[in-house]
Design a protein around this nucleic acid. Structure first.
Lengths: 200, 200
DNA sequence: TTATTATATTAACAATGTTAATTTTATATA
DNA sequence: TATATAAAATTAACATTGTTAATATAATAA
């Protein structure tokens, strides 16, 4: 795909990337509320108006960051859990690594789950990607459980959903509402809840 | 408390209320993104600058709405579930009514759980209230289950948490990310998940 | 080398939150 | 009751942010 790009497209993609990277850095470091066109452009080494030659609007640009963070999240979780034994134990590890990623980058959680996406018509595929991220990360292992007769298919579906809602519920309260108020408590609570969801 | 207010305080409270009610109506009808000082003041019948004689800033005003919505939510849930048999069945009913309230007023969910509250130092009690709302609504019934030896205290605590995270996880995905994409699917999914959490 | 096109920048505008300056209204006192 | 003072409300103004229009600069083709 990249090979078929003409010179112009290559250069265009390059400049888009400067903006995307600038926005990502701000998001990662300071969170969504600190991201604005002048900020981004400054960091990218352009004027703010130049941004509009490459992106429809700022939401469009910020949305591009989502794909990068998604890849990074997958990468992180995979490398942190590759040596775990398959099945429930691995699912628990994946869930923990997934949570850990957002604890490290709360701005990414904000972007993925809290940002208002007023008109998300053309962005639905990306939204879908995020919605299914945890499922995608765990799917093989759920299948493994089903194959080993640990659960029926229906039970696995149920638990998959339960895991997703519990994990994001926990993150919503902790990251956005400081509940529980310390990481230590949050960590203990997560572990208890995960153990409960993933019991046979 | 009201009885001890002097004339000035009474009048001040009255005007504060005009602003709070105006903001609440907009929130309820059009959601958080449509709330702004000029809007609110128009509806309250004042100039936007007047608002600053009564509230530190617009966040302060919007936060006042929280208490009203909380009371309304409690009221609604209680009246919709008063005739249910005690115990798990009632908890399920409460959870459903609670969910229904936010489906009816997505702007309230936004305000309660999604809004960024940059400095929430003095607002922590209110945040706490919201964080514990579902728990408060169900507490008596959980206690009833424990009294009837349906669960141990620890089990009840665990399930209380699980219910909270599942319910808010479901709402987060549906209200903020349109996942699932139809109410029908959401309704079915909620019912399945609630049944699962609340099984003995 | 110059005309044309592409790209980038500055200037300007609209929306929103906020504060300052000014006007209006209410209150107290002579 | 009339006027001085305090309180409350309004208009004007400013800052920030997203966005677009007008202008300037750089790249490219004839």
């Amino acid at each position: 795909m990249v090979l078929t790009m003409d010179k112009k497209t290559i250069q265009e993609e390059r400049i888009k990337r400067y903006f995307i990277n600038a926005a990502s850095e701000i998001l990662r470091g300071e969170g969504l509320k600190c991201v604005n066109v002048r900020n981004i452009a400054d960091r990218a080494g352009y004027s703010y108006a130049t941004l509009y030659n490459y992106f429809k609007d700022v939401r469009d640009l910020i949305f591009e960051c989502v794909k990068d963070f998604r890849d990074e999240c997958i990468q992180t979780v995979k490398s942190e859990t590759e040596s775990l034994p398959r099945g429930l134990e691995k699912i628990e590890g994946i869930a923990k690594a997934y949570i850990k990623y957002y604890i490290q980058y709360p701005g990414v959680f904000e972007l993925f789950f809290l940002e208002k996406t007023s008109d998300l018509a053309d962005k639905q595929p990306t939204i879908e990607m995020i919605y299914r991220l945890l499922d995608d990360l765990c799917n093989e292992e759920w299948q493994h459980c089903v194959d080993n007769k640990l659960f029926s298919n229906d039970e696995a579906e149920l638990k998959k959903g339960e895991l997703k809602f519990v994990v994001h519920g926990l993150l919503l309260f902790y990251l956005n509402r400081k509940q529980p108020s310390s990481f230590k408590e949050f960590f203990a609570l997560s572990n208890i809840q995960l153990k409960n969801v993933l019991k046979v």
